[in-house]
Structure formats: C-alpha cells, structure tokens
C-alpha cells in the first residue's frame, strides 16, 4: 500500500498550499516581501507530501501552516518554498 504520510503525524501541523492568486493578499496582510518570509526547503518531507496532492511545486510558492499553539488556540504561519536552505 501507500507509504507512510508525514502529514498524519501528530507533531506535524497542517500544511496548505496557498493558491497563486491569493499569494499577494497574504503578503499584503503580513506587510512583508516574499524573501522575508520564513523558509521551507523543497526537499522537506512535508513539501514532498504536498507534492503528491498538488503535483510538482516550484520554489517561491507560499505554504500556509496552521499551528496549534498552547497559548493562542490555532494560528496561521507562512513559509516560502526555497530550493536550498542554509
């Protein structure tokens, strides 16, 4: 059967791909340039899992992460896909 899906693990928060036409509104809301967002590698296991849903992802796409916070309930966090991380 299919291999183990990392997105199902309890320690991995929900990852969602932001549609291209919504990217500008996200950047506007955060008042930030795309390069200043936190990064996530294109080789990250969670991105690999997302690629199985959406097909190949290009660097520069924005990922919305819905984190569970011990103090603030749920909140959204954004990361931008990059080719390589330092």
């Amino acid at each position: 059967m299919s291999k183990f899906n990392v997105l199902e693990h309890e320690i991995v928060p929900e990852h969602h791909l932001v549609p291209v036409d919504e990217e500008m509104s996200v950047l506007k809301k955060l008042n930030i340039a795309r390069d200043n967002l936190p990064k996530i590698s294109i080789n990250d296991p969670a991105i690999k899992a997302l690629e199985e849903i959406h097909g190949k992802l290009e660097p520069g796409r924005i990922i919305k992460i819905i984190r569970k916070s011990p103090t603030a309930g749920y909140y959204e966090y954004y990361r931008v896909v990059v080719k390589s991380v330092i």
Binding site: H9, I11, V12, P13, H15, I40, D44, P45, I65
Partner: peptide, 14 residues
C-alpha cells in the same frame, strides 16, 4: 532525526 523524517515544522514542535 525528526527534521529529516517529518520536516522542519515538526522539528520546530519537537
């Protein structure tokens, strides 16, 4: 190891 297997967001939680 968490980072390598489950990704950077999981590592952050870890």
């Amino acid at each position: 190891e968490v980072e390598n297997v489950l990704g950077v967001e999981a590592a952050r939680n870890a």
